[in-house]
Design a protein around this nucleic acid. Structure first.
Length: 876
DNA sequence: CGCAGGTGGAAAT
DNA sequence: TCCACCTGCG
């Protein structure tokens, strides 16, 4: 999920990266991404309940590469469902279930390719799968952790703590959680796209002095996130415009007025939306995560004084006792909440590495008592290159500041804040960093960096690391909060005082080079600084950026004045035991969230898939007429659907669930599909051989029918009583899923004229499609057709009812005729090696050509393109 | 004209 | 699920 369109929106700051860049560092991984991709390859086996470790190997492929490059991976898995995401999850679950049922139905009808497509869409990563990966990882010495709730927040926490220096994910949400360096789209060779949060302001177009990370987060929430659908007509473009223009520091006011004030839209913003906006923001800020070093549950950022933990059940109810630890260790099945493993980090002995050199403490397992966070991360790719370039440059101010413990600058309350000019605003605010308290902890401080200019951030990052290394920070100043300056660690208190005095007096405009030592400036930063003196202007004013605050009016004072109490609270402070358990959410709050999300936008509230599915009811209706569709064009053996005795033994219950669907007689099938009583929520569907066969047609081969060639094969015998055929017919799925030559019975007897197509269509949609397309565009299951939309969308396209024609090639094929022999030959190579036919463009074109009556003698490109051109005309 | 939203296709082996 | 492409709206 994440933020729709955020990655393309941030294209400007995409930079190619190889994970090898993080050699000697720790990179935390959103395991779900890899698991899901890996599961895609074996979706059918997973659905059938067959044992497979394809997804494990898939993950290990990435991990082995990282290990080879001396990058320490930490796999982070998703945990319990967040209350605020319950409805989203529910709709996903329903969707998956729908696909599962659809897959079952497709299988009944022998549409294996389509069934497989459906199965791929109902992939759910089960805790057992995660456990399997975890076990394999641990055997390779790779750390794993299960987040109490969302992996995103946990990843961000690891980043903020300094445990990880970068994140690998596909989810743009990570940026909102405040991760500094996020790698997207990483391939097996470690190549990906790096987005650094300190460059976000380059995209937003907010002048440097006014950019804050909060603005970015608000912008994303406004454009629609997992926790809050956007208002209609508001996307990233509009949201960024709002926060580019906004000088309003009161978020409530801003949200109330933004459509008219900044967008010239007449859009009323309901109070509910504003409330939910704040909840969404809090979920990004204070979601519960697990601190593996202290082994306790903590909020991602410490709660500010005005927010108490019991108001934040939507960001994850507290998990009591050892439960949180065992969830984190992966010992608890997060679906059932039962113990299903017994990993003990204290007795865990990682495999010995080949290297004889001693492992630095930051490369140890994070569960190891001797583990320490990495002292310093040097971005070799950028920092080192820049160093020589800045040597000897202007350096009017060389003193180095020590970061101080958190305290807030005292300022008088000024109610006229909203009407101030930019220059006034730039000087009047200080940051209210929620994590400033952490400096006294072993943890790295919060990513206030994201709000800093690039060079300051880099300098600060180095500082942070060095601070961590030193671990003890003596606080001498009260004036500055941690975000004030990126200060090199060395420097006497005297120097610092002088420096601060000079700042106070002049509100000086100082070259950026004075703020960070030359070796801390990246080329990009340098360029910015040199090219844009304007940026430098604000270099000193970073700590004074205007900040948006949720409760600005009410909390103006507390916003700008640190209460002494939040100074001491640390991230690692365990949350109060509120007696809330996993199941004890705040029903009012959740209910409210749900209600709100229903009113705000139809897009999210509707659990319907974008594409209309074929109604199972329709399907069954037609089927009940006794015309079970054969697979006339089946030229592939879908060996994946081979029945596995082992699988049946392993999960008999699941099998029986599936049996309910697959083996039901047709008249009862309709009922069962529409019934909600069927419990298919389990991620497993197992196709039982006998049922599978019986649900389809009697296999003539089993009856001793002689094989006929594909041209004169007989049509299927309508299965009026599937139950009886179930009893009488026993055959392997393989025999059912024969290639053309093997199962000639599947073939219809005659050429695919339009009427014959209609005859063979077992659904109303098929019939519709056939009738709306030309005679040569009959639908045959021989070539995968979109199962997602069934026939609705693509058929429309074929029939010219939709806008484009380009997609018709791959999905529509003619019914089998004598030309199919050549196609069959073309495909036959797949039948042994692949479970699903994937057609190359050329092959698709050939099919299309033949549909159109074009004879394509070869796959010569020239011919194809010519034919393609004509084709388009024909279709148009 | 720019943006939001809808749609189809690909993903792994 | 993400991306590219297209359409329609303001």
């Amino acid at each position: 999920m994440g933020i729709q369109g955020l990655l393309p929106f941030l294209k400007k700051i995409h930079s190619p990266v190889n994970v090898a860049k993080f050699e000697g560092c720790t990179v935390a991984i959103d395991a779900y991404c890899w698991l899901h991709k890996g599961a895609f390859a074996c979706a059918d086996k997973l659905a059938l309940g067959e044992k497979t470790d394809v997804f494990v190997h898939y993950c290990m492929k990435y991990l082995e590469y990282m290990l080879r490059k001396n990058v320490k991976p930490i796999m982070v898995f998703d945990g319990c469902r967040l209350p605020s995401k319950k409805d989203v999850e529910k709709s996903r679950r329903e969707k998956r279930e729908m696909y599962r049922k659809k897959a079952a139905q497709m299988l009944r009808e022998g549409k294996r390719a389509e069934a497989r497509e459906c199965l791929q869409r109902c992939i759910d990563i089960s805790p057992e799968m995660a456990l399997e990966v975890m076990n394999t990882c641990r055997a390779r010495g790779i750390d794993c952790i299960v987040a109490p709730y969302e992996a995103d927040a946990q990843l961000a926490f690891l980043c903020k703590q300094g445990i990880a220096q970068a994140i690998i994910t596909e989810d743009s949400d990570l940026l909102l959680f405040g991760c500094k360096q996020v790698i997207f789209k990483m391939d097996h060779f470690g190549n990906g796209v790096l987005i650094e949060s300190n460059r976000l302001n380059e995209v937003l177009g907010i002048s440097e002095g006014y950019y804050t990370f909060e603005k970015f987060r608000y912008m994303c929430i406004m454009s629609g996130c997992d926790y809050l659908p956007s208002l209609p007509g508001i996307g990233l473009g509009k949201a960024s415009k709002v926060f580019k223009l906004a000088r309003q520091t009161d978020l409530q006011l801003l949200l109330k007025k933004f459509p008219s004030t900044y967008l010239k839209m007449s859009l009323s913003v309901p109070q509910e939306y504003i409330d939910n906006f704040i909840k969404a923001d809090n979920t990004f800020l204070y979601q519960l995560v697990f601190n593996p070093l202290r082994r306790e549950l903590v909020p991602l950022n410490p709660y500010p004084p005005e927010i108490s933990s019991d108001q934040l059940d939507y960001a994850g109810p507290y998990i009591r006792g050892d439960k949180a630890l065992h969830i984190a260790l992966g010992n608890i099945n997060i679906y059932t909440m039962q113990m299903f493993a017994n990993f003990d980090p204290d007795t865990y002995v990682p495999p010995k590495t080949k290297k004889k050199t001693s492992c630095p403490s930051h490369m140890l397992s994070m569960w190891n008592k001797l583990y320490k966070v990495r002292p310093k991360f040097v971005d070799k790719g950028t920092v080192e290159v820049t160093r020589p370039n800045l040597q000897g440059k202007e350096q009017t101010c060389t003193l180095k500041l020590q970061r101080k413990s958190p305290s807030k600058r005292q300022r008088p309350v000024d109610e006229s804040a909203d009407t101030r000019s930019d220059s006034e605003l730039s000087g009047m605010y200080i940051s209210k960093s929620p994590l400033k308290e952490e400096s006294s902890n072993r943890c790295l401080p919060e990513d206030g960096l994201s709000a800093l200019s690039p060079c300051r951030k880099r300098a600060k990052m180095d500082l942070d690391c060095s601070l961590t290394e030193e671990s003890e920070i003596k606080d001498s100043g009260k004036e500055e909060d941690q975000e004030v300056l990126s200060t090199p660690k060395k420097g006497s208190p005297e120097d610092r005082r002088k420096f601060m005095a000079s700042l106070k007096e002049a509100d000086t405009v100082v070259s950026i080079n004075t703020l960070a030592s030359p070796d801390q400036v990246s080329p990009r930063d340098k360029e910015n600084c040199l090219q844009s003196p304007k940026r430098n202007k604000f270099a000193f004013l970073m700590n004074k950026r205007p900040r948006f605050d949720i409760n600005a009016k009410k909390e103006l004072k507390s916003r700008y004045f640190a209460s002494s109490s939040d100074k001491d609270s640390t991230t690692s402070q365990p949350r109060d035991e509120r007696g809330s358990d996993l199941t004890t959410n705040s029903p009012q709050q959740i209910g409210k969230m749900e209600r709100n999300s229903q009113v705000t936008k139809t897009k999210v509230t509707s659990p319907e898939p974008k594409v209309k599915l074929r109604s199972p009811v329709n399907k069954a209706k037609v089927s009940s007429q006794g015309q079970v569709k054969a697979s006339p064009g089946s030229v592939f053996s879908w060996s994946k659907f081979k029945f596995s005795k082992q699988a049946e033994n392993q999960s008999p219950n699941i099998n029986s669930q599936f049996k309910q669907i697959v083996s039901k007689p047709k008249n009862s099938f309709q009922k069962s599909l529409s019934s909600t009583e069927l419990d298919l929520s389990s991620s497993d569907i197992t196709i039982v051989k006998d049922e599978f066969v019986s649900a389809s047609q009697p296999n003539p081969r089993c009856h001793g029918n002689s094989s006929q060639n594909s041209q004169n094969a007989s049509s299927r015998v309508p299965g009026d009583d599937l139950q009886s055929s179930c009893n009488s017919v026993r055959g392997s799925i393989d025999s059912f899923c024969m290639t053309d030559s093997q199962t000639s019975q599947d073939k219809p007897p005659s050429l695919p004229s339009l009427p014959s197509c209609v005859t063979h269509s077992d659904t109303e949609e098929d019939a519709r499609q056939s009738s709306t397309t030309s005679a040569s565009l009959c639908v045959s299951p021989a070539v995968p057709r979109s199962t997602l939309g069934g026939v609705t969308k693509k058929a429309c396209r074929v029939s010219g009812l939709s806008r484009g024609q380009k997609t018709t090639k791959s999905k529509v094929s003619r019914a089998p005729d004598k030309k199919q022999c050549s196609i069959k030959d073309l495909f036959s190579k797949f039948s042994h090696t692949r479970s699903t036919p994937k057609l190359s463009h050329a092959e698709k074109t050939v099919i299309k050509d033949e549909e159109e009556g074009w004879m394509t003698p070869s796959l010569d490109n020239k011919v194809l393109s010519t034919v393609g051109g004509v084709q388009r005309k024909l279709l148009a």
